[in-house]
Write a protein that binds this DNA or RNA. Structure first.
Lengths: 119, 119
DNA sequence: CGAATACGTGCAATAGTTGGAATATGCAAG
DNA sequence: CTTGCATATTCCAACTATTGCACGTATTCG
C-alpha cells in the first residue's frame, strides 16, 4: 500500500520488460486484436498469450472487450504506442547502435479463425 | 547474439523496472552527480547504489566520468529525461488516477562531501 | 612507501519471474 | 443440459533478480 510514484512507475516498466509482451503491444499498436489472433500472429500457445495479456491488463496497459466468444484487446491509452515508439530510439545494441527491430506482423494471419482474418 | 529488437527493448525496460534506479535517474535528470551524492540523496548504502548504477550503466542509460577520486554519473542520452517524464503520465494508481510522485531531492544534500554540496 | 577516501565487485540468502501443461470458465448452438 | 470453441487460471520446476555485507581496487596525499 506504500506505493509511491517510483514504485508504481517501476511496476509499469516491469510489465514492459518482456519481449513477448512488447510484441503483443506492437501488434495492438496498429489495431485491436482477439486472443486467437495474437495466438496465431506470435505463434505461441494460447494459455501463454493469455498469461502475458493478464500481466498487461493488471498493469493498465491494455483493456478488453467481449464480443460473443471472442475477447478483443486494445491499448488502454492512446499515448502508449507513440511513447513506446520513442522508447525504441533509446535502445542501443551493445557496441554499435543499429536496432534490428523485426517487422510488425501482417494484419491478416493464416489459420486465424477471427473475423478479421477470415475474409 | 540472438537479441532482436524486442529483446533489447525488454532489457532496457528491465533496467528501469526498479524504484531505486528510477530515483537515481530522477536525480540525474537535473544534474550529473557523483556516487557519494546519490548515496547521501537516497540514503542508501554506497555499495547498493553502486550496484544499481552498474545495472543502469550496462543498460546504456547512464555514463560516467572520473574526476580525481570522484566518479560523476549522468544520463547517457539527452532524450531520456523527457521520455521518462512522459512515461509518468501513463502510470495509473489502482482505482483512481492521481500519481503521488515524491518531490525531487534537493540539489544540495547535507553530509555529502562532494564539491557540489560543500560550498 | 603507507594511509585515507571514493567506488566497485563477489557472495549468499531470499524473493520474484518464466513458461509449459493441465485444468477451469464463459458463451453460443443444438 | 450437453457439446464445442475461445479464453482464463492454476500449478510447478527452472531460472533470474534483489539486497545486505565483506572485501577488492583506484586515486590522492603525506
Amino acid at each position: 500500500m506504500a506505493a509511491d510514484g517510483f514504485e508504481l512507475q517501476a511496476q509499469l516498466f516491469r510489465a514492459l520488460s518482456h519481449p513477448v509482451r512488447l510484441q503483443i503491444l506492437n501488434v495492438l499498436a496498429r489495431t485491436e486484436a482477439c486472443v486467437c489472433h495474437l495466438n496465431a500472429a506470435l505463434n505461441r500457445p494460447q494459455p501463454y498469450v493469455s498469461q502475458q495479456l493478464a500481466t498487461l491488463r493488471e498493469a493498465g496497459l491494455v483493456s478488453d472487450r467481449r464480443e460473443g466468444t471472442l475477447i478483443y484487446y486494445r491499448l488502454a491509452d492512446g499515448r502508449i504506442a507513440g511513447w513506446l515508439e520513442r522508447g525504441r530510439e533509446l535502445v542501443k545494441n551493445g557496441d554499435g547502435n543499429p536496432i534490428p527491430f523485426p517487422p510488425a506482423p501482417p494484419e491478416v494471419v493464416p489459420h486465424c479463425p477471427c473475423p478479421h482474418c477470415q475474409r
